Computed example of a mutant assay.
Amino acid sequence: MKNLLLSNWHVMRIFRLAFAVFLFVQAYNTHEWFFIIFGLFFFIQALFNSGCGPKGCAVPQKKYPKK
């Protein structure tokens, strides 16, 4: 678990973390607490390095060989 949280930090992961912090600050400043839900979404993505990869969010299609 420690290895998952502390390794493989890249630009998109840092951007998600910064955007989550931005949403938390905006929720606090404007008292629009609905922004916290979106902030938590991006925070969890940044923390666990989940989300869409370089090929997008599409589900990979299994290719069968032609017979």
Rank of each mutant, 00 (worst) to 15 (best):
S50Q: 08
K67G: 07
W9H: 15
P60K: 08
F24E: 01
Y28F: 13
N3C: 10
G53D: 15
Q61D: 13
I44L: 15
K63N: 11
S50F: 09
N8A: 07
P54S: 12
V11G: 13
L40A: 09
F38N: 03
F42G: 00
Q26A: 10
A27Y: 00
C57F: 06
K62V: 14
V59G: 01
H10V: 09
F22N: 11
F22V: 08
Y28V: 06
F19L: 14
Y28E: 04
F22R: 05
A46G: 12
F38G: 09
F41L: 14
W33V: 10
L47A: 11
L5F: 13
I37W: 08
A58Q: 07
I36A: 05
V25N: 04
I36C: 05
W33D: 03
Q61P: 05
W33P: 01
P65W: 04
L47T: 08
F43T: 01
F24L: 11
F48W: 11
P60D: 05
K63V: 14
Q61S: 14
G53R: 10
H31M: 08
N3K: 15
K62Q: 09
V59N: 04
Q61W: 09
F42H: 04
H10I: 07
S50M: 12
N8P: 00
L40R: 04
P54D: 10
V59Y: 05
G53N: 15
V21A: 10
V11N: 10
R16E: 07
L6H: 11
A46K: 00
K67Y: 09
Q61G: 05
Q61I: 14
P60Q: 06
Q61T: 15
C52V: 07
P65Y: 09
G56S: 02
C52Q: 10
W9N: 08
